[in-house]
Nucleic acid binder design. Structure first.
Lengths: 149, 149
DNA sequence: TATAATGGTTCCAACGATGGGAAGGTCAAG
DNA sequence: CTTGACCTTCCCATCGTTGGAACCATTATA
């Protein structure tokens, strides 16, 4: 089948399928006599695997590992689980970071009248001299010398 | 003061300071006779403002707006608050998305033995023909209305 | 003073994942 | 045979940040 059909069937755009081939995430597709890429149901199955992994936030390199484990009949589920747990930790960390931002911002926005007057606690916080030490009203202890992430 | 000093004082790398100047986020710095950028305490203050906003996850274009409001004595705090609330919504949405991924992954990882056996619910889920929200990749896939983004 | 070690300058490229578009070839229906 | 949809490759843009190369300026030391 043509790349457009495979794209619709897998939920991955044709652009991205070509890109994945280019970076070696998937092997080069067969070609028809006229040079069109030709995909089998198996190929589409692989693409769906990739899309699902992508939807779960895995990076291309992680997907590469997962694909290789998927194809390996002698894999150890521990290897898969390790990748998953690692990714969960990554997500947890990014979520925590964003929640910190959100909490701080929500506090500031709450203190801001939001009318036509110029006084604004949000700008006041941003403009604090030595922003490095500006107290973020989060539950995390005072910032260290090195900025987080 | 030189860019390196300003970088340390503000917590923004010299590279980024030049970049911010290049894209017009900050005005071109004064130059010494030998061509070195020369920063004042006021400039550093602005850079700290930018860093603080960046730490809160604001994009460059949002920071641009915030800076211009900061410099405008006749600003309306409502404008600032609007930007903040909008950003909070953005954060909330991204957090929700990642939490969805995390929940799914945690469930799968929990069901995975994680030992040397090859059976793995994580791979099992990823390999589901069609995944959770995609059409079944049969030979005659039913015409599907546009799938979720 | 000569020299080495910082530290500044510009320019170019890369990352990750994706989209846009141009120029041109191919296929199927009318 | 024409038309329109689809395919091909190639290049560019995104966003924020980092890295490096090649070169110039300043400063510290032998």
């Amino acid at each position: 089948m043509n790349i457009g059909i495979a794209a619709k069937a897998s939920g991955i755009s044709a652009k991205m399928i070509r890109y994945y081939e280019q970076i070696g995430l998937i092997p080069a597709a067969d070609r028809t006599a006229s040079g069109y890429r030709d995909y089998s149901d198996t190929d589409v199955h692989t693409l769906c695997f990739i899309r699902r992994a992508r939807d779960l936030g895995f990076s291309v390199s992680e997907i590469e590992e997962l694909l290789s484990l998927w194809r390996d009949r002698d894999r150890q589920s521990g290897d898969v689980k390790r990748i998953a747990l690692q990714h969960i930790e990554e997500l947890r960390s990014r979520i925590a970071e964003m929640e910190g931002m959100m909490t701080t911002l929500a506090t500031l926005a709450d203190a801001c009248a939001g009318d036509q007057r110029p006084d604004c606690p949000i700008l006041g916080d941003l403009a604090q001299p030595g922003g490095r030490n500006s107290p973020a009203p989060t539950k995390t202890p005072p910032p260290r010398s090195s900025p987080s992430v």
